[in-house]
């Protein structure tokens, strides 16, 4: 018997005994269970971070967001445009020092493809009080298929440090019930971009 600060003499490659062997076996089996969980959840789970990923120039993303705002704007709040896109559409949310553009008005139960990106530095998308978080990286479009499951008034807090005004960066998402009428001025059905026409 020797300690960890003494040089082992002769051959130390010896068979593993009893309790230690059992523990290594249990630990390895548990590791395999953990390993299986992530792929299985992609098949069975309701919430996955995969998304549709593509590179995008920040200027181009800004242009898309502005066109999205022009098309579906229904109002303004604290200087930030409020938009109500039709169910099933592509919706855009852009982080910039230090605000989220625009305020989104969504419909419970409808499906949307949410495009997240940044105009300047890294930002953090944190939907509260639900606590759903994604990294927002300039130059990359993170497309997430979302379905609001609850009506209410939500906040998007930035949770990636983005400069001195970081803690002031808070956005808003409103989810209305299926039955509620569309806000005045909301158009419906028009596709964005129109590049396919």
């Amino acid at each position: 018997m020797h300690t960890g600060i003494q040089s082992p003499q002769g051959v130390w490659w010896k068979p593993v005994r009893g309790g230690e062997k059992l523990w290594v076996g249990i630990a390895f089996a548990w590791c395999l269970v953990l390993f299986a969980m992530m792929p299985l959840w992609h098949l069975r789970g309701g919430q996955n971070p995969s998304g549709i990923r593509s590179k995008v120039d920040p200027q181009a993303f800004m242009a898309r967001t502005q066109e999205f705002i022009r098309t579906y704007q229904v109002g303004t709040e604290n200087g930030i445009p409020v938009v109500e896109p039709p169910p099933g559409s592509d919706i855009y949310l852009m982080g910039m020092m230090w605000s989220w553009q625009p305020v989104l008005r969504l419909r419970k139960g409808a499906q949307y493809t949410l495009h997240l990106s940044s105009f300047d530095v890294n930002h953090g998308f944190s939907l509260l009080p639900f606590n759903i978080n994604f990294q927002v990286v300039p130059g990359y479009d993170y497309g997430l298929r979302i379905t609001p499951t609850e009506a209410g008034d939500f906040r998007i807090v930035c949770n990636e440090f983005c400069g001195i005004g970081h803690h002031l960066m808070i956005g808003r998402v409103i989810v209305v019930d299926e039955s509620e009428p569309a806000a005045a001025g909301a158009s419906s059905g028009a596709a964005i971009g129109g590049g396919n026409l």
Partner: peptide
């Protein structure tokens, strides 16, 4: 980088499990 936009899920799953959690196994040992 698990909720980052630039990397595919297969890359995330393989690497974050440290390839079958073999480094976690080391700490458990």
């Amino acid at each position: 980088l698990l909720v980052d936009p630039g990397l595919p899920p297969t890359w995330k799953v393989w690497n974050t499990s440290y390839a079958m959690y073999l480094a976690v196994l080391a700490s458990m040992i």
